[in-house]
Design a protein around this nucleic acid. Structure first.
Lengths: 193, 193
DNA sequence: TTGAAGAATGAATTTTAATTCATGACTGAC
DNA sequence: GTCAGTCATGAATTAAAATTCATTCTTCAA
């Protein structure tokens, strides 16, 4: 198995993303991925330990890239509310721009239960980002003091994921990013008349 | 394959629930389910078409039961806010009381992509319930007129699922139902100070 | 007591796809 | 032109479980 992230490594990873998102990890076969990548079945084993490892590397890689962007987006915000808006917008943008990733995170991430501990879990990192933002918001006085942060951050992440999930189910037929501000408005002021 | 829902059918379905939730659908084997149910492997095929069918029937059955309870709960509410509180509480209660189901809905429901259309999808029914409640809330003047109902209902469901997901990950070590009212408060009034 | 129908068994079979590895092709140094 | 090292191939192997079915057990009516 080669160490460096050669061009072929990337091609295989992308093909795997396409095949996993179309058929689901378990119904996807090595042959399908190899065919799409334009290589022989055996070649995959020069770059990956096994089928699980392909999914693992895919998720690790995407997680790292996306999370880097999210952190960058949040840093640009001047106050808690702005940071929250930038984070949610970035989240929706990234998933809209990479539908395969969206589908895979949605449906397969949980398969990796056992090896999850090794992954820089995107949920964990995301929730930490949210904690920071909420705590800052409380200090600024922009968010209520009596919030149970542990619940609020789950509430926020759950809602974004729910919105993405619907979009995926709808085959991505509408613009996801335009949901960002209405969604944040709901977080901030709720549905009450 | 027998038609009636005999006692043995139920025993197998429950055993399957336990095994699926422990190992995940794909790692679970027919032999494990049969052993737990105290029958021979072949017996499962007297009651179910195949392994997929077991998951399918499990989810169909649980969906029906839970949804019946949710509908009953909502009917008891006098106004939109009360209905929402009762729905969320019922949701959390049912999942707390049946952890196997909670795990399976969380991680395996999406596997059934292909046969999803045949399933009385719990999300669909749930979202319809929410639509009714929100629209009623708007008529009552208890909820804002400018809400985009399609987004709000997803927002609400996503957040509950997120909270359940965390609870499942935490191995159910705390009381889930006590999250109901704080969660609804967030829906209604948001996090703004 | 018997025997026919319905249930259940579990070892044998089948299926399916992941993984291996003997072979072949390519590349650049000399 | 040749050789060594690297990379790629894909048919053959392996492995794991799902599924089948010939056989056995149970029940109960006559």
């Amino acid at each position: 198995m080669q160490k460096n992230k050669s061009e072929k490594y990337q091609i295989i990873l992308n093909s795997a993303g396409a095949v996993f998102s179309e058929h689901g990890f378990h119904k996807a076969t090595i042959s399908q991925i190899a065919a799409l990548a334009g290589v022989a079945d055996g070649t995959l084993y020069l770059y990956f330990k096994n089928k699980d490892d392909i999914l693992y590397q895919y998720i690790s890689y995407k997680t790292e890239v996306v999370f880097e962007k999210m952190r960058g987006a949040v840093e640009k915000g001047k106050n808690a509310e702005e940071k929250l808006r930038l984070l949610i917008r970035c989240h929706l943008e990234e998933f809209q721009n990479d539908k395969h990733m969206a589908v895979i995170f949605q449906s397969e991430a949980r398969y990796l239960r056992d090896i999850q501990s090794q992954i820089k879990d995107i949920s964990k990192m995301y929730l930490d980002l949210l904690s920071e933002i909420i705590e800052q918001g409380q200090i600024e006085g922009a968010m209520r003091q009596d919030l149970f942060v542990g619940l609020v951050k789950r509430f926020i992440l759950g809602a974004v994921e729910g919105v993405i999930s619907t979009w995926v189910t709808a085959e991505g037929r509408y613009d996801l990013v335009s949901m960002a501000d209405p969604l944040v408005d709901l977080y901030l002021t709720g549905v009450k008349g």
